[in-house]
């Protein structure tokens, strides 16, 4: 088991007064709150910060921790509590951490053990009465989909942690894996709910639900704008000038698109019904094709002479007409 340096977690010195600890905790809790932070391991950091605060805010626990910190300071960072160690400050104080006590580290457990909530005997917080039936916690998970998967719907494996009672009635985390059929048309940030797949209830209470928030992985060609799917389509100058029929990829196949004569860069063409479907799987959005006139990197001598002819022919065209004073 690794020793946890709670002072380092909160970024305070060993002799920091409680006020400073509180301030550091508040700041870090805001920074790493999983609903606020975009950092990858925000959730882990947030839990660490909560655990550190749970110990350091309480003078008794802090004193015990300091003692242990001296004792447990082995060179390799590993830690074992001394034989017969028992905390005089059983966990169960107030504060937000109550709800997440089961998520605390093994290190915390070894020090303030027996502290994890026990069935029917936990801290008398909200709805946690003596042996009363309690609904299991809802669980929130994120799931990244490729655009193709979001458009067509797919089957995905999702792993997440639930909290359940072990044989001694203590609430401990357990990893759970489910296969989930994702309906077509999920947008970034939308949720799906799986009823009863969250943490199991306590004392005969119903299980909580699983909420999955969908994220979309960036696609090399397409971007999503509301219910429409955008594609930038390079076209040659002569295709733009003369009009053309060109093959265009859509998310699930391709279509032939007519470029109108005299098209320009930035012009938007609409492929009806080729955007994001709605929840019933019916077409809702369109695919918007944004034209981009693209030139070859080099021209042949023949092409250059043709350009000279073109320059003669198009003398009235001033591409910088809007720049004149």
């Amino acid at each position: 088991m690794d020793f946890k340096d709670y002072y380092a977690v909160l970024g305070v010195s060993e002799d920091a007064p409680v006020d400073e600890i509180k301030k550091a905790y508040r700041k870090l809790a805001r920074k790493f709150h999983p609903d606020v932070s975009k950092e990858k391991d925000a959730e882990i950091k947030f839990k660490d910060v909560g655990e550190a605060y749970e110990v350091l805010k309480d003078p008794d626990k802090r004193a015990e921790y300091d003692q242990m910190r001296k004792y447990g300071a082995r060179g390799d960072g590993s830690f074992e509590p001394p034989p017969g160690w028992q905390s005089r400050s059983p966990f169960g104080g107030g504060g937000y951490t109550e709800a997440d006590a089961a998520q605390f580290s093994d290190f915390f457990e070894s020090m303030f053990g027996g502290g994890r909530r026990q069935q029917g005997a936990g801290p008398g917080g909200f709805g946690f009465g003596r042996g009363a039936a309690m609904r299991g916690e809802d669980v929130h998970a994120r799931l990244a989909l490729f655009l193709e998967e979001a458009v067509k719907g797919c089957e995905k494996q999702v792993s997440f942690n639930v909290t359940e009672a072990d044989e001694r009635g203590r609430l401990v985390p357990r990893r759970k894996t489910l296969k989930v059929k994702i309906p077509p048309g999920m947008r970034e940030g939308q949720h799906i709910r799986l009823k009863g797949q969250g943490s199991p209830g306590v004392g005969g209470g119903a299980a909580g639900d699983l909420f999955i928030e969908v994220e979309l992985a960036p696609h090399p060609l397409f971007t999503v704008e509301g219910e429409n799917i955008l594609l930038t389509l390079p076209v040659a100058p002569w295709e733009a000038a003369l009009g053309a029929k060109v093959p265009v990829p859509t998310v699930d196949s391709k279509v032939n698109l007519t470029i109108p004569k005299g098209a320009t860069t930035g012009q938007r063409l609409r492929l009806k019904g080729k955007g994001m479907p709605n929840k019933a799987g019916k077409s809702a959005g369109d695919q918007i094709v944004v034209l981009q006139v693209t030139l070859p990197k080099q021209h042949s001598e023949k092409a250059e002479s043709l350009y000279r002819q073109l320059a003669d022919e198009e003398q009235s065209f001033d591409p910088r007409s809007k720049m004149k004073t």
Binding site: E155, Q157, T177, L178, K179, V180, K181, I182, P183, I192, R193, L194, K195, Q197, K279, A280
Partner: peptide, 8 residues
């Protein structure tokens, strides 16, 4: 693993 179907 059983496949869970999402309520619409």
């Amino acid at each position: 693993v059983r496949t869970e179907v999402v309520e619409q």
